[in-house]
Each structure stands twice: as C-alpha cells, then as structure tokens.
Amino acid sequence: MIRTDSLQITTDILSLIAGIDEFKGAWRALGTLAPDRLSALRRVATIESIGSSTRIEGSKLSDREVEHLLSNLQIKSFETRDEQEVAGYAQVMELVFMSWQDISLTENHIRQLHRDLLTYSDKDDWHRGNYKTTSNSVAAFDEHGKQLGVVFETATPFDTPRLMAELVAWFSEERETGRLHPLLLIGIWVVVFLEIHPFQDGNGRLSRVLTTLLLLQAGYAYVPYSSLESVIEQNKEAYYLALRQTQGSIRSDAPNWQPWLVFFLRALSQQARRLERKVEREKLVLAKLPDLALQIVEFTREHGRITMAEAIRLTGGNRNTLKQHFRTLVEQGHLVQQGGGRGTWYELR
C-alpha cells in the first residue's frame, strides 16, 4: 500500500510546480518554430537523453559517439554492451514519442517496454520483459563506469509481482480521482518503481523512459525537446541521495516523500528553463542578429543584466562597435537601457 497522507506540500514544492506549469502553458507560444528547427531540437535532446541515461548506469559512450551510433541504427548489430544499450534506449524513446497516447500504464506494457529496451543486449536475453528472479540492488557509478557502491536494497523477487500490481493499480486510481497534482503523482510513481526495482537490469533506464511517457500523457508536450536525463546526469550525486532518503521510508507508516519530490521537481524545472533558453536563442537566430548582438542578449538572459565592460570581456569586441549593437538592440526592443554614464546597464525588455 502506498501512503501519501504524510505528504507535505511545502511552498518550495508549490513554487516549483507553478513554474513548470507556467512553462507548460507557454509552450504553445514558444513552440512555434519551424518544423525543421523543432525537429533539430528534438534530435539534440534525444541524443543527450540516450547518452546521459545510459551513462548514469555505467556506459562510457559520449554524446558524439551516441550520435554516430544513431546514424547507423539500421545495421541492427552492435558489438559492445554500451552500444547495445544505446540502440535499445533509442528504439524505445522513439516508440514513446510516436505512440505515447496508445501506451497505457499496465504491467503488460511495462514489461513490453523493458523487453524492447534490452532488445539488442545479448547478455540480457534470459530476463528481458520478465520480473527479476534473483535479488538485485541499486548501485552508483562514477564517470568512468566504476561502481561506487550499493545505494539501496530493493524488493525481493517474491514480493515484486504483488508490489508492481499494487503500484500500477494505485497510479490508475489516483490519476482518475485527481487528488494529487500530476507531477506529484508521477514523481511518487517513479520513486516507488525504483524502490521495487522489478527487473534484473535496466530499471533506471526504464524509469526515465516511463517518466517521459507519463509526462507526455499528463500534457507536458515539450518534454521531447529538452533532456531530463541530462539534468539528472549533471546532478547525479543529488539524484542518488534523494532516492536513498525517500526509498528507505517508503514501506513505513509515514514515508518521507520530500527529498525525492523536491529533486524531481527541480530537475523538471531545470529541463524547462533549458528549453526556454534554446527556443529564445532560435528566435534570435531567426531575427538574424549579428553574432556579437546574439552573445550580448544570451549573456543578459543568463545573468539578468549586462554592462559595457562585461560585453567587452565576453566578446572581445571594440567598444564603439558594441555601442552600436547595444543601440540597435534597444531600438529593436530586445534590451532596455538603465542608468546613465559609467553606471549604464541593460536588461531584457
């Protein structure tokens, strides 16, 4: 039984949800780029997601190597385990992006996605698509793929089928009643799934695929264009810590959902902010801004304001040339000038 009566909705959680939902609502306007640019954004995000998600589990392939591998997926033959895992992840990601409306969250579909995830992994032939038959545990890896140690002891093989049936039924009921905000519901589902760790291998990768699936089904249509997996990889220590802090209490009378939900929502918030910056940059490129002007606007968006001295350090440009760029950016409505003389600074309009 999954208990959420001890869940405290703090101002931090409320603020994160509000920000993510604000971006969700704004995406319709932000996502009006040309189809080819949206397609390019999605391809970059997909490469980042595949690379990051497999590296979290110990793979050593860089994003560039992942990109090269994806361009040759039609060969259907991969020599190393890392390549096999990347190919499987790519195939499942594409399936989710294309068919998310038709993939209901059932045990059968979860097992099918696991089977597809490991479809090229020769070593996993014996267990793919089936719940675990021997005990497993969550291990952490460093950037070189070396195991750092056990993070968490998981459910027993005997308990796994019952716990998975309970988890799927709980999610279906909660989604129907709408008692929990969709982001909280998805966050709790994911952390319980990882606490059960139902498959012999591939649980971490599958959890991130399922997160994307559930976010798409909840209306977060921008998800394919920004990599959540990349955010998690860059915050891997915090990821494992949040998992450990919450998972140790899940089977108690008062689970501590807070550590994981705060991490999860912050990761989603960072994912949205990254995409917002990318879209705004695309629009600036379409506005045919010169490179120096583009650098000025991007710095201002990142830091909130910019001065002439900062622009000179950033671009190495001539002061008079930069003055002209600032004047044009103000005239075109990209920037607003504040102050005067040596105290002049600029911010976004």
Rank of each mutant, 00 (worst) to 15 (best):
R266S: 13
S137Y: 11
A238N: 15
L241W: 11
T344I: 05
D124S: 15
S207K: 01
N203P: 08
K76R: 14
R3Y: 02
D122F: 06
E176G: 06
S135K: 13
A140S: 15
V44M: 05
A311K: 01
E57C: 06
D36C: 07
W100C: 01
K146R: 11
D142T: 05
D116Q: 14
L70T: 04
A254L: 09
S71F: 08
G19E: 11
A218M: 04
T46D: 08
Q270W: 08
R349W: 03
G219P: 01
G304F: 12
N136T: 11
A238K: 15
Y220K: 04
E176H: 15
R128K: 15
E331S: 11
F78G: 03
N130P: 00
A45G: 08
Q234K: 15
V192K: 00
L210S: 05
M93P: 02
G248A: 09
T54S: 10
E310V: 06
H127G: 07
L228S: 07
I232C: 09
L167H: 04
W189T: 09
T106A: 07
F152R: 02
L113G: 00
Y131Q: 07
A221C: 00
R349E: 06
H114R: 08
R273E: 14
V92E: 08
S53G: 10
A26Q: 14
R251I: 00
S99R: 14
I296D: 05
L286N: 12
E347K: 10
R305D: 05
T154A: 10
F152H: 15
Q217V: 07
A254V: 06
Q258M: 06
V190M: 13
D102R: 12
F158N: 10
Q112W: 04
I2H: 04
E48T: 09
M98K: 15
G25R: 12
V168Q: 01
M1K: 04
R205K: 13
L113K: 01
I188K: 00
A87F: 07
R327H: 13
T211D: 01
Q217G: 10
S227Q: 07
T46H: 06
L265F: 09
I312V: 15
A293G: 08
L214I: 04
E229A: 04
A238F: 11
N203A: 01
Q337F: 06
Y346Q: 06
G340K: 13
S230T: 09
A309W: 01
L213Y: 00
R208M: 03
H303S: 11
V150L: 03
G339T: 09
N130G: 03
E302C: 00
T46A: 12
L243W: 02
L180M: 10
T177W: 10
N136F: 05
V92G: 09
G178K: 11
F158P: 00
Q247K: 04
I9W: 02
N108W: 02
V330I: 05
H334W: 15
V66P: 00
L33F: 11
A165W: 02
